Amino acid sequence: MKLLFALFLSALLCACASAPGTAPGSTGAPSGVESATEPAPAPPTGVQWRYINSKSYEATNPGLGISHRFESNVGWVDVYIYDMKRNWQPGVGDPQFDEHFRSTISEVQRAIAQGMYASGKVGPTRDVRIEGLTFRTVSFRLVRPRDGTPYDSFTYLAVRNGKLLKYRISFNTPSPANMDAIAREFIERNVRTGPETPVGTRQLRSA
């Protein structure tokens, strides 16, 4: 299980670090996470996302599921659906959920220490309600080693239909002021249309 998880996180970090063309602390769940209330719908952001491709990890690493890449003029999104060969309890309440979420943060910190990023900062962890699901989210401020360009990236993780649903949403520099609204809008639309098979999906290719 640990080997599968390490392989998956390695693929995730590579996706997070790869920008789509031009420019693209305290960790873990805090004691007393703020109440995850779902706010009223925000005005549309006007951001149009393009589906790019999909990858399947199941053939070589059962349990690591699939991923889908989307891009726009403000950044890029990687959507991961996987189960790690077990059935997960809904939302963020599974006994292994918190440990798994903390591991995603630790893996980014190791990547920073190993030089994949020139530097990086981890923001606070909080729970949010989006499209009827409770997500645990954390922000990252990362700096590319090749040119020193900083960019913002966010992880949103929840359980849906017994599987882990993870969004890694990264923004080109300069980051838009309404990053939270853009991220929420993308997740809302993606959950409504079904994250497993995006509209216009091309044939999956193996990782």
Rank of each mutant, 00 (worst) to 15 (best):
L64G: 10
N73V: 10
E185Q: 15
R69K: 15
Y156T: 03
T134A: 04
P20H: 03
S54N: 15
G32P: 02
D127F: 02
V77L: 11
Q48H: 08
N178H: 07
G123N: 00
D83S: 10
F8L: 13
G162M: 10
G148D: 01
W88F: 14
I81F: 07
S18R: 14
V33T: 10
T104N: 13
G91M: 06
R202Q: 15
S54E: 14
I81P: 04
R141T: 11
Y117P: 05
A23S: 06
A23D: 09
P39A: 08
T37Q: 07
Y51F: 15
T137P: 01
V108D: 09
W76H: 12
L133F: 05
F135G: 00
S139T: 10
E71Q: 13
M84Q: 14
Q114C: 09
F5Y: 08
I130N: 01
V79I: 05
C16I: 11
L204G: 03
S72F: 02
F140G: 06
A6Q: 08
V79L: 04
V128R: 01
Y80T: 01
V33S: 12
P62R: 01
A113M: 05
E38R: 12
V74Q: 01
I182E: 04
S54D: 15
P43F: 04
L13N: 07
S170G: 11
I187L: 10
P95H: 12
R129K: 06
H100N: 05
F171G: 14
A15Q: 12
F101M: 04
Y57D: 07
K2Y: 12
T155N: 06
G25V: 10
Q203W: 00
K85Q: 09
A19G: 14
A183M: 13
E185Y: 10
L165R: 01
D98P: 00
V33A: 14
S35K: 08
P90N: 04
V159S: 03
A19C: 12
I112K: 06
Q48P: 00
L7Y: 04
S56F: 05
N73A: 13
Y151H: 07
D152L: 13
P39S: 08
L157G: 05
N61P: 03
G21H: 06
F186D: 03
G25M: 13
G32K: 08
R146M: 06
S31I: 07
R102K: 14
D94M: 06
R160G: 08
D180F: 05
P195H: 07
A118V: 02
P41L: 12
E38C: 14
G194E: 05
D180N: 11
T193W: 03
T134N: 11
L165C: 08
A29K: 03
F140Y: 10
G148I: 02
